[in-house]
Design a protein around this nucleic acid. Structure first.
Lengths: 110, 110
DNA sequence: AAAAAGTACTATGCAATACATGGTACTGTT
DNA sequence: AACAGTACCATGTATTGCATAGTACTTTTT
């Protein structure tokens, strides 16, 4: 049992929600998302985010377009789809309910 | 991509926290924990909780004692250890930080 | 001009975990 | 004796975060 591992487990399933939320605000490419999440102390790495974006795109929650970069290779800018917005709404509800449940269960002690 | 699946993913890693929190309040056996979590709308099933309790026990965060039941087979009452309490404190911190991060990332939209 | 460094995307494999499923064992009721 | 209810346990599967390694393009350094 290791704390870092448990932290990683807690992050599971939340990334989808965070990424959809960020992209519902404005489109972005992968490295940009990593940077934003890092600033919010949500550590994410390339090996996590690229497969996740591909998954979300394959499921019709995201789309992307290529854009040339001033330096470096072209970027894939991801944007949320209407289906993605619907899904985001559900995830937001789920998240609120989950935090309430955890609150309820953990409040008795300390 | 399926909402129920994503909900399950969100629950991941939170169960450990919830169970330690419940057991820090008072000892309990598996079916009792399932019932309590159910009442908090945190759905858990046997196949999830038994391996989890065993894992926490093997890692020294929990202990148990057998107790005869008035009806049915004897029960394993689990209780938290000092190490478990330390771990719980860390998990509580982690959870607070995580919810803050999610808040930060998801607040811009809607 | 060639080499190095930086940026961005992609592919593969592993480990951890929630859950489905099926099974064992004990008690009390019919 | 058969059945239902309670409680615990074992095995296999799917999903997912992450480590690792690799490709491709551009700019800077030598």
């Amino acid at each position: 049992m290791n704390l870092e591992n448990t932290k990683a487990q807690m992050r599971k399933g939340i990334l989808e929600y965070c990424i959809l939320a960020l992209l519902s605000d404005k489109e972005a490419y992968a490295s940009e998302l990593i940077q934003t999440l890092k600033e919010a102390r949500l550590l994410v790495v390339e090996g996590t985010i690229y497969p996740l974006l591909t998954r979300l795109k394959n499921d019709g929650l995201l789309n992307y377009r290529w854009e040339e970069s001033t330096g470096g290779p072209p970027r894939k800018y991801y944007m949320i789809t209407p289906l993605g917005k619907d899904f985001l709404k559900e995830l937001a509800k789920t998240w609120v309910q989950l935090t309430q449940s955890v609150q309820k269960v953990t409040q008795t002690n300390q």
